[in-house]
Structures are given as C-alpha cells and as structure tokens.
Amino acid sequence: MSENIIELINISKDYDGAEALKDVSLTIKKNEFVTLLGPSGCGKTTTLRIIAGFENPTEGTILFEGQNINSLPPYKRKVNTVFQRYALFTHMNVFENVAFGLRIKKFDNKTIKEKVSNVLHMVNLSGYEKRSVDSLSGGQQQRVAIARALVNEPQVLLLDEPLAALDLKLRKEMQIELKQMQKRLGITFVYVTHDQEEALTMSDTIVVMRDGSIQQIGTPVEIYNEPKNAFVADFIGESNIIDGTMLRDYLVRFAGHDFECVDKGFGENKEVDVVVRPEDIKITREEDGMLKGVIKSVTFKGVHYEMIAEANGVQWIIHSTAMSPVDSRVGLCIHPNDIQIMEKVVSE
C-alpha cells in the first residue's frame, strides 16, 4: 500500500490564459481508490486528462512509478480511461469493443477470446459478445466501457464521472460493483465525481478541489468529520457553518454562547468558521439546552426529520429521528467533539 504509482508535482494548466489548474500536487499510492471531488469547473477532469495524457500540463511534472511521463503520448501510458459518456465504438459489436486494446497489442486470437470472455463475465455481460453497443442500456454500455479498459490489465484505471448518466438505483449498484472490482483486482482507481455521497461511499482517499486547486486530501471520515475549511464542509454533506471566535484553546464562542471544544492552536480571540453537522445537534427540553430556540419548520426525509430551529439569531439545520413540532420551544446541545473549528477562508 505504501508504494507511490502516480505523483503530480506542482501541476498547472492554462487554457489561453484561463487557469484550469493551479499548482496541484498529489501522490497516488498503489491499489488506492482515489476520488477527485468538486463542483464542475474545479479542475478534476483536467487533472484526470493530464494523467491520461490527453492534456499537457503548462507547468509541473507527472511521475509514473518514479519515471517522468510528461512527454509520453496517451497510447504509450499504462493507464486506461473509462469516459463519461462511455465513448464506445459504435461500428463494432461488444466483443470487438472490448478486444480493441488487445488487437492493437497484437495478441493472438485465442488469448483475445479468453481474456474478453473473462472480463465480460466479470462485468456480468457474458453472452452479449455479438450485440451491437447501440442496443444496450446505459448500465450495460457502462459495463462494456469498464470491460474495454480493464481487459488491458492497466495499473491505473481512470474513471471520469462514469456513473453520471445512470439513474439513482443503478448508480448505487454500480458503485458497489466498482468498489468490489477494484479490491478484487488490486488496481489503482482514480475516480472523478461531483457527487459527494459517491465519493464517501467508494474512496480510500478523497481529494476535494475548487477553482483549480486542492482544498483537502484525506480519508472519507477525515473529510467529513474534520473539513479543513468552510468550502469542504459545505460541499461534503449538509452542515451549519457559523462565524465564531476562538477565545482560547478549547473554548470557542459562537451564536452568543461559549462552547467547549477539542481544538487548539488558533491563538486567542481569533475569528474562525465553526462547522456543526445537522445530526450532531441534540434537541432537549428548553431549560436543559445550551441554546434556547424555536422550531421554524419540519420536513420528513425518510430516515430522519430535517428541522430548522432559530436560536440566538442563527438558523440551525437539525437532523433527528424524533420530531419536534413547529413553533415548539426547544433547547439545543452540541458535544465538544462535534464542533469543528476552521480557519477563515480568505475570500478571493
């Protein structure tokens, strides 16, 4: 797990003066499932295309197993890509699509047949060899695209929002399948998505990007529980982001109340952003609460209720399985562990 397979060092990319990537550095380990996550236009696809070789970085170095591959054309790189809209060859049937890479590498027919039928079995498409790709459903085309890439046994598989075009149910199924496939085959996956839930479900490491630069790199749990800044917190899941003041180590004031917390090292009386996840706010009787407020709205969300409570001039989003009726007066409690303190992002 410790060996690095891809290293991006200070990569920048300009498109006619518009900066798509700014000084991006990223290390990807062998067998890791890395997700590049961010809103559209954040540079995640550009990063992937630079790894694949479709774009050349304006500045910076790409290493593959320690070797500089900046000037290596895509067809010589040991990576394969699953494209967003599959990019299947419509003039070939399923078998020929999957066999494409092997035929280029001049494998003999017997080996090709064997490998193709193995990989088609793996993606549950045995028996579809002779079908034209146009006759397949979105999910099936997706599997063909994955099979076409995997059959070449790449060391790294690049996936550019591969599930974006599928409906929710199919997407969930494919997420699980892809994750299992990655574990079983021991291939490094670099996965691009704008869907935070997808990123949390599948990844070993999440790289959150915004405006061409990396905001945070960490495991899903780290990213969710300890977002580095308000952007990450806001992008990953729902959260309450409040202006606060770090009075001293382990004590923060926000919403007119002093809270104990577990963070230190910010200095005294420092302006900070405070993040509290909606599920971490406990509703109590009014007299027991750290904050006292009133429920403004209640929405049933299936597993939980989403309630908006107003207390000390702040609108709090609260998720709870127990419903408190609208207009009821309640107390709100937040555990020190559930308070996440972040330095203020300098707005550009």
Partner: peptide
C-alpha cells in the same frame, strides 16, 4: 464523430495511424 471516441482509441494504445484505420 465524438472526440472522446478518438481519445478512447488512443487510450487503448492506438497511435494516430491506427486511430484512423480502425476508428
């Protein structure tokens, strides 16, 4: 012709000549 189809062929190891003849 979708540009990503050309890229897919390159990605699978086809040089420019092969991309033309095969795709």
């Amino acid at each position: 012709v979708d540009k990503s189809v050309i890229e897919a062929a390159q990605d699978l190891g086809a040089n420019n000549f092969k991309v033309f003849t095969k795709v």
